[in-house]
Simulated scan of single mutants.
Amino acid sequence: MTAAGVLTLGLASGLAGFTQGFGGFGSTLVALPLLGMVFGMRAAVPLGCLMALTLNVFLATRHRSHVRRPALLLLLAAALPGMALGAALIGHLPEALLKSLLGAALLLLAGQSLRTGLPATPAGTGWAAAAGFVSGCLGMCIGVNGPPVIAWTARQPWPREALKATLTTYFLLAGIGIVGTQALSGLVTRPVLGLYAAALAPLLGGLWAGEFCCGKLDDQTFRRIVLLLVGAMGALLLCQAGAGLLAR
């Protein structure tokens, strides 16, 4: 591995660990663009998924007592039919259109929530089912399953421990299926596993730093930062959609 590769791997894995440790999500959001530039997306995608799975194992185990189990089960149950629909729609809906709509919705939600705060009545089980369904559908169609679930949990009046625990457990269970599918498809190769082993130290160091910084914030400040991250995800999706259209 070149010096540039070592530096990129350390930076990407450290940022991934910090982001996930702080907010409970977002590791692949920051890691994949950096990893893809140096190692190519065929290696970056399974590597990013392995790193996210590792982070979620640690976080879900540590915060397991705070998981909101009824909400988690509802999200998972709703995601299954969404996955079935997504599998049927693959190739029939433009990826750029789906990313544009999702990105715009996330920006609007984050902007409104930052301006008005939490609603008097939190988004209920119907919205949870919708978030899980859309998450499963988008995960199959465009490989992006997190934003709808993150957006729903961010609107709940939960303490940060419950928000992080529920998100990380959801992504842990989803990640097991994703990594398993990638392994069966031959994407988790020996070079990918070598990169993963080299990334573990900065990944776990970033995780510790993110959890440490999160513990220094009050719940209101933490929620505002989570909403800013949701808005950043929306902006990134819009940029990806625009880049896809320009590349045609």
Rank of each mutant, 00 (worst) to 15 (best):
T2Y: 04
T2K: 04
A3Y: 05
A3H: 08
A3I: 06
A4I: 09
A4T: 12
L11E: 04
A12K: 00
A12H: 02
S13T: 10
G14D: 03
G14S: 13
G17N: 04
T19G: 10
G21Y: 00
G23W: 00
V30H: 04
A31P: 05
L34R: 06
G36E: 11
V38Q: 13
V38A: 08
G40D: 11
A44E: 03
A44D: 03
V45H: 03
G48M: 07
C49N: 14
L50Q: 03
L50V: 10
M51Q: 14
A52K: 05
T54W: 00
V57H: 06
A60T: 08
T61P: 05
H66A: 15
V67I: 14
V67E: 09
R68G: 05
P70I: 13
A71K: 02
L72G: 09
L73M: 11
L73R: 12
L75F: 00
L76N: 09
A77V: 04
A79N: 12
L80C: 09
P81V: 08
P81H: 04
A84W: 10
A87F: 11
A88D: 13
I90T: 14
G91P: 12
H92L: 14
K99R: 15
S100E: 09
L101G: 13
A104Y: 02
A105V: 03
L107P: 07
L107C: 15
L107H: 04
L114A: 01
L118N: 09
L118Q: 08
G124H: 07
G126A: 08
A129Y: 02
F133V: 03
V134P: 11
C137T: 06
L138R: 02
G139Y: 01
G139H: 07
G139Q: 13
V144I: 02
V144N: 08
V149S: 08
V149W: 00
W152T: 05
R155L: 15
P159W: 00
R160K: 15
E161L: 10
A162F: 06
A162Q: 15
T166C: 12
L167C: 08
L167G: 07
Y170L: 14
G175A: 13
G175W: 01
I178T: 15
A183C: 09
L184R: 14
L184S: 14
L184V: 14
L184K: 15
L187P: 04
V188T: 03
T189P: 02
R190H: 11
Y196D: 06
Y196N: 08
A199Q: 02
A199D: 08
L200A: 14
L200Q: 14
A201F: 10
A201D: 09
L207C: 07
L207T: 00
A209T: 01
G210T: 04
G210I: 02
F212E: 10
G215V: 01
L217C: 13
L217W: 00
Q220D: 15
T221N: 10
F222S: 03
R223Q: 11
R224P: 12
L229Y: 00
G231Y: 00
G234E: 07
L237S: 07
Q240H: 09
Q240G: 12
G242S: 09
G242C: 13
G244D: 05
L245Q: 13
A247E: 11
A247C: 08
A247R: 15
R248D: 12
